[in-house]
Each structure stands twice: as C-alpha cells, then as structure tokens.
Amino acid sequence: MIQPDMPRTWYAPTKPHKFCPGCGHPLILKALGEAIDELGIQNRTVYGCDIGCSLLSWNFFALDSTQTHHGRTTPVMVGMKRARPELICVGYMGDGGGYSIGSQHLVNSAIRNEKITLILANNTNYAMTGGQLAPTTLPGQKTETTPFGRDPELTGHPTMGPEMISSITGEGAYVARGTVAKYRQLKGFIKKALQNQIEGNGFSFVEALSTCPTNWRTNAKQTWNWLEDKMGAFYPVGELKSPFRKEG
C-alpha cells in the first residue's frame, strides 16, 4: 500500500507525534506542512504556537519555531513580522488562545491589518487543561466548568470568530473557516492564507473546525457526527473575505 509522504516541512525526529488518537490538530498541521512545501517557503517561515494542545506542535515542524504564552502568540508574531518583514510569520492557537485570553490581540491585529497568518483550531473546549468551557463551546454542551450544559443566558453564545474578524479587518485581508472534515478545502484556505502574506496584502486568518474525542468522550462515529452535524451546522464553512478571485 502506498502511503502519502509526510510533508517535508514536518520534523521527522518528533514523529510519531503525541496528539491523541482522533485529534484534529495533526490534520490541520499536515495541511499547513503541505502548503508550506508547495509554496517553497520553509526557510523563511517562522512558526509560533500557544499554550494548550497547540503547544504539542512546538517542535513539530522543520521550521524555526517558538512557543509563547497563552493568548500571546498573535502579538509575538506581530513583533517578529514588524522587525523582519521578509519572514513568513505563522501563528497557531486554539479557540481559547484566540478568542478568549488572546481576543484583544486578535481584534487589534486584525484592525491594524497585520501582515501575518494565524490558524486557529476550534474544538469547542479547553482541551489540554481537562475540558473546560471555551468561547466556541456550543449551547447545551457539557464541559468541566459547565457541568450541566452551556447556558447562553449565563455565558453568552458561541464566538463567531471569522465573522467578527472579517467585519473589522482591512482591505487585502484573507479570512476563512475550514474543517478537518473537508481536508482539501481546508488546505486550500491555508495555502491562500500563506500566499496572502507572501504577497503582503494584509491580515490572514483561518479557523479550522477540529475534533477532540478525548474531551468530548466520543468514539469515532460520534466524533465525526459532532464535527460534521453539530459544529458544521453552527459554524458555516467557507471564505468570508479574500483579495483573490473567488473560487467555487
């Protein structure tokens, strides 16, 4: 059986990786790795990750990488890009690091149209710390800090990140939401988000709907159900803003 190669930009010594079985992160990171390979930017790309499960990717790539603090990946990549504009700065974070503790940085970087690329994995919970409420937790969803189900009256409705970003960011920005359930499409979005930075057009942001069977406590079937039927129904997939010609 012929198996697809690992992306060249993946760092072989740290494989097999430590993500849980069924986790969506490796799929997103594969898409990112392949996109970087295809664009030929391995040597000038810098990768930053947050705290949480994204932290497991700190030595995942054959790229110069840095770990930051929780929610602070965005400003670190902004600082890097402003200091060395020729670098392709890619920040990777979860729904907590992006929409909660990191939201003020995300919002302001989007408003300033910072020429960086951010990829956010949305698995509707704070996974690494044991499954607490996240901004993207769905109404009624049980987490360790909403043990009786998320009540939007008390904790608000789930954050629609790309929608918010696309409405506040500037001309030349690229904003999309993909899903690990549609790998090719997700990879296409990520590739465009990188291309957008190569061309120096503006802020580039891709949210990827992702899976966390460990904290969802779901078997394989239930996991895909939750991702495709529940999350998919709540979070529309597609490009929200793009300086490129629209694709079908």
Binding site: I101, G130, Q132, E144, T145
Partner: peptide
C-alpha cells in the same frame, strides 16, 4: 476564574 493548571479543579 480562568483555566490554568494546577488549580482547575477548584472551578470544577
């Protein structure tokens, strides 16, 4: 509160 190890269980 906000999640951070090792005090999460206080919130739980």
């Amino acid at each position: 509160g906000y999640p951070i190890t090792p005090q999460n269980e206080i919130m739980h």
